[in-house]
Design a protein around this nucleic acid. Structure first.
Length: 422
RNA sequence: GUGAGCGUAGCUCAAUGGUUAGAGCACUGGACUGUGGCUCCAGGGGUUGUGGGUUCGAGUCCCAUCGCUCACCCCA
């Protein structure tokens, strides 16, 4: 085969597209009643935006970005995530002058240069939301509840919600120090990866799956115990609101996110059916990012769902039916085939999906077989005999019933009685 | 970037180192001159991913390479 898609990118073929459309349509419907409006940032941005937003030390920035120089020598990057762009747009267009909170959603492709595996691709798609201008945990709870409602609306159950608070500019450095203190005594027990993490991003050590590391970090201090008074209150209220909303969740003090901009609330929605890449959605608060990007101090929170991951969960449940073919014109001979073109066109004008035979010499048998395979509800048979008599035969494929109508009455007959019964 | 598994017909898979690489599904046609699904019959389809090597002989063994998959790392 001469041409294939590049590694980690794929075609979404029609049966799957109908699942995607459902995922997108339900998102639009659910998010809009919470006041979210669609925003469409570009797919390329200046590289600097992501480096500053996501964090220079993160894996995404260090080794996963699709970066290139444009013809003027500027460094451009295919977006690896959506939040940085939305924050940029929020500031660039002075949207902070509109009444708070300002809420946006977006959907589209993201790009990360990683080795693909189940649920992880180089071009993947996210549906994300961002809410600017409110720091109350009520907004956190509302947003997480909206996510839950959304997942419920597209038919997913058995998902687990995990939440955490990773503190703010005041309390996180303090916790980091405590953790380093604790880990320094355990250094011989840690795996090589964790020794690297120890100096670069010690919070990650808590997330390690190597049994020795899990053992070594058993008594490690939890972030949630070192929150400052404000963060503690924020987190406590959030948990209370979530309970009030009836959303069951688990506090996971070891949950660490891979993007540097998060503050306070972080959360993930996990499925056990997805293999190693088990997060269908994830998000958190980023109260400092707008200011860091040069906007006014503006608290914010958002999440993103992975469309491919949702789609695989839905596909495993089958029943992914697209629209059904209404009618197929089976024709015999040149005259009949020409006549069918006109009739098909008139039915299509009435909004009916119809197909026709294009080869006058094809056998009726082969045409019926084809119509059957296309799952046509009706076959309209037009041959020399019918043309002579001025009629057209119609056949209902479910039960094989057939009869004929005058050609002059055909369109009215079809758009009248038959459409209603189907 | 690291590791493992797998590459045979459009799809799912057979074939102890030994004739001409098979089967099911799908496709086309026939049994049934203009009537689908069920059944039976026939037919078209292959550089066994690619390139080397070992051997009298390689789909099978070895090496390399490409691709796919899963996992690590990390994340949606």
């Amino acid at each position: 085969m001469k041409y294939r898609t590049p590694k980690g990118v794929q075609d979404i073929l029609p049966p799957e597209v109908s699942v995607w459309q459902k995922i997108e349509n339900v998102a639009r419907r659910v998010f809009s009643v919470y006041g979210y409006q669609e925003i469409r940032p570009p797919i390329i941005e200046f590289t600097e935006l992501f480096v500053r937003g996501i964090g220079e030390e993160t894996d995404i920035v260090e080794k996963e970005m699709y970066t290139f120089q444009d013809r003027a020598g500027r460094s451009i990057t295919l977006r690896p995530e959506g939040t940085a762009s939305v924050v940029r747009a929020y500031i660039q267009h002075h949207l902070y002058n509109l009444p708070s909170p300002q809420r946006f959603y977006y959907m589209g492709p993201m790009f990360r240069y990683e080795r693909p595996q189940k649920g992880r691709y180089r071009q993947f798609h996210q549906i994300g939301v961002e809410c600017f201008g409110e720091d109350t945990p009520r907004v956190d709870a509302e947003l997480m509840h909206m996510l839950f409602r959304y997942l419920e609306a597209i038919g997913l159950r058995d998902l687990s919600f995990e939440i955490n608070s990773i503190g703010c500019r005041q309390c996180r450095p303090r916790y980091r120090e405590k953790l380093l203190q604790f880990l320094s005594s355990k250094r011989e027990q840690l795996c090589t990866d964790c020794l690297r993490r120890y100096s670069r991003n010690p919070l990650r050590v808590l997330d390690c799956k190597v049994p020795e590391c899990i053992e070594a970090t058993k008594g490690a201090p939890a972030v949630t115990e070192y929150l400052c008074a404000n963060c503690q209150e924020h987190f406590g209220s959030l948990k209370r609101y979530l309970e009030q909303l009836g959303l069951t969740f688990r506090v996971n003090p070891r949950m660490v996110r891979g993007l540097d901009y998060y503050t306070r609330t972080t959360f993930e929605v996990l499925s056990s059916e997805l293999g190693a890449q088990n997060a269908v959605a994830a998000g958190g608060r980023y109260d400092d990012l707008v200011e860091e990007f040069g906007g006014p101090p503006t608290p914010a929170i958002g999440f993103a769902v992975g469309v491919e991951r949702l789609a695989t969960l839905i596909m495993e449940r089958a029943d992914t039916e697209g629209p059904r073919l209404f009618g197929y014109f089976a024709t015999l001979g040149e005259r009949a085939t020409e006549e069918a073109m006109g009739l098909a066109s008139r039915l299509r004008d009435r909004g009916l999906w119809v197909e026709m035979n294009y080869r006058p010499e094809a056998s009726l048998k082969s045409q019926l077989r084809k119509a059957n395979r296309m799952k046509a509800m009706y076959v309209f048979i037009l041959g020399e005999e019918e043309i002579q008599k001025g009629v057209i035969r119609y056949k209902r494929m479910d039960d094989g019933f057939q009869s004929e109508v005058k050609l002059s009455d055909f369109v009215a007959f079809i758009t009248g009685s038959m459409v209603q019964e189907s």
